[in-house]
């Protein structure tokens, strides 16, 4: 495997980096959607994230990366009892993937050579406990989208066909990226992403030059470049691990819950998923910042990514939905109180 670009070496794009870190702190936030211009490092960030994330423990040879032997599905016939450490799985779902490859299907080779009905796990199995990354998610075939919606909802992949009756856990963080000019995402799928960020090319010349400089240094010698950023990445990794432990202990005052509800009501988001995601993301951010209590400042920081894709479309509003969220937040919490909060 080639050396990925170090996460901390990504210039700017703070909202995207923050969203990805938050899902690493609390996977229940439920995925990130990155929409934006071409050539802004969307895919680079996802690959970098894979290298940044702490390793996971799993039973050796388990096709669904189970942490305990009792979690290994029966059909997998896992022989080993050893636990091994492995990098966090970040699985690519290629655009043209067939249904069979995504869900898994009958293992033809074993069927033909040995006449056995065996299950060959698909991408969903491999992504369990990790990340599932879909580049150009807005170009994904409808039937694959339906499939993903179902699995992302239930956390379980069920295969019932060709004499197979298989189920296995498939809990993963969905990361999608795409360019909105090439087509939009179905609202149902949009809703499944916890956070949604919009990226654009940096507008400052100095920043652009820095991007090019680092990219060039990376391409000339990936290993050396990674070494210079190793310490930074390690620091980030430690913060994520600490935040993971801390997130359950974060206090949520009544006032924060009220703020969440008021914000979502004012924005008219559908359902309660908005509130939940907002709260989880704010809590993860508080944990990452080392705070003990979720405060308005945290809500404010995650409001746009947590809510902008849940608003009802108002095509006559020229400003994007991110601006609408910001406007409402300012209206509710006051515009200039960030420092005081």
């Amino acid at each position: 495997m080639t050396q990925p670009f170090p996460f901390s070496a990504i210039v700017g794009q703070d909202e995207m980096k923050q969203a990805m870190i938050l899902t690493a702190v609390d996977p229940r936030i439920g995925g990130v959607l990155v929409f934006g211009d071409r050539g802004t490092g969307k895919s680079t960030a996802v690959r970098a994230l894979a290298a940044l994330l702490p390793k996971i423990d799993q039973i050796e040879g388990c096709p669904v990366n189970s942490a305990r032997l009792s979690d290994c599905p029966g059909w997998a016939e896992v022989k080993s009892k050893r636990r091994v450490e492995r990098p966090m799985p970040v699985i690519d779902l290629p655009l043209g993937a067939t249904e069979d490859r995504v869900t898994g299907a009958l293992d033809i080779e074993r069927a033909l050579t040995r006449g056995e009905t065996a299950f060959e796990p698909g991408l969903l199995a491999r992504a369990n406990r990790g990340y599932l990354y879909i580049d150009e998610v807005n170009l994904l075939e409808d039937h694959i989208v339906d499939l993903l919606l179902d699995v992302a909802q239930s956390g379980e992949n069920v295969v019932e066909r060709e004499g197979l009756s298989i189920r296995h856990p498939a809990r993963f963080v969905l990361v999608g990226s795409g360019n909105p000019e090439e087509g939009e995402l179905r609202p149902q799928l949009l809703d499944r992403f916890g956070l949604s960020v919009e990226v654009e090319s940096p507008r400052e010349v100095e920043q652009r030059i820095e991007v090019i400089r680092r990219r060039d240094a990376y391409e000339r010698n990936p290993a050396d470049f990674a070494k210079t950023w190793n310490a930074e990445d390690a620091r980030l990794r430690r913060r994520i691990v600490t935040a993971r432990d801390a997130v359950a202990r974060i206090e949520t005052p009544e006032q924060t819950l009220r703020d969440c509800a008021e914000l979502c009501l004012a924005l008219g988001t559908d359902g309660l998923r908005g509130e939940l995601t907002l709260l989880r993301a704010a809590r993860a951010l508080a944990a990452f910042d080392g705070a003990a209590v979720v405060e308005r400042a945290h809500l404010r920081a995650v409001a746009a990514p947590a809510l902008r894709h849940r608003l009802r479309r108002d095509p006559l509003d020229e400003a994007g939905s991110g601006a609408r969220v910001a406007r409402t937040v300012d209206g509710l919490f006051g515009a200039f109180r960030t420092a005081a909060e």
Partner: peptide, 16 residues
């Protein structure tokens, strides 16, 4: 990078 910016190219793949 400056040249590509002056030409109004937003993609960062261009200077690379």
């Amino acid at each position: 990078t400056l040249a590509s910016t002056a030409l109004g190219i937003s993609s960062l793949r261009a200077p690379l």
